[in-house]
Computed example of a mutant assay.
Amino acid sequence: MPKIVDQSGGFYHNFKDDGSVFNGEQRHLVSSCRMVWIFCKAYELYGDDKYLDLAKHGVEYIRSKHWDVLRVLI
């Protein structure tokens, strides 16, 4: 945090050892879902709305971008 959040949608998945983002366009469904779960769990544990907002941010990306991948698999 806060480098993980892509303001245009979803989360960055690939980081160098120094924390800088590389390959910012590549996203994986499993990683996106895991990040949403982590923020949901953080909200459950700490009750801070910023974690709920981040979870919603991730869910929106899954629905808008990963959904086409899910439709192909079903």
Rank of each mutant, 00 (worst) to 15 (best):
H13Q: 15
I38Q: 03
N14Y: 12
L52D: 08
L45E: 14
L52V: 04
V69F: 11
Y51P: 07
D17M: 07
D53L: 10
V69L: 11
G47W: 08
V5C: 06
G47S: 12
F39L: 06
W67R: 08
V36G: 03
P2Y: 00
H13M: 06
K56D: 09
V69Y: 10
R71E: 15
S31L: 09
Y51T: 12
I74L: 00
R71V: 14
E25A: 14
K65Y: 10
I62G: 01
Y61E: 00
S32D: 15
D49L: 12
G9P: 03
K41W: 03
D53I: 14
E60P: 00
G58Y: 00
F11D: 01
G10H: 00
I62M: 02
C40G: 03
K65N: 13
C33S: 15
Q7I: 03
N23W: 05
D17P: 11
C40V: 02
L52K: 15
V59W: 08
D17K: 15
H13P: 02
R63M: 10
A55L: 02
H13A: 10
R34W: 11
R63T: 02
K56C: 09
D48N: 15
V21F: 05
L52C: 09
D18A: 07
S20C: 05
M1C: 08
Y43G: 05
Y43A: 07
D17C: 08
D53H: 13
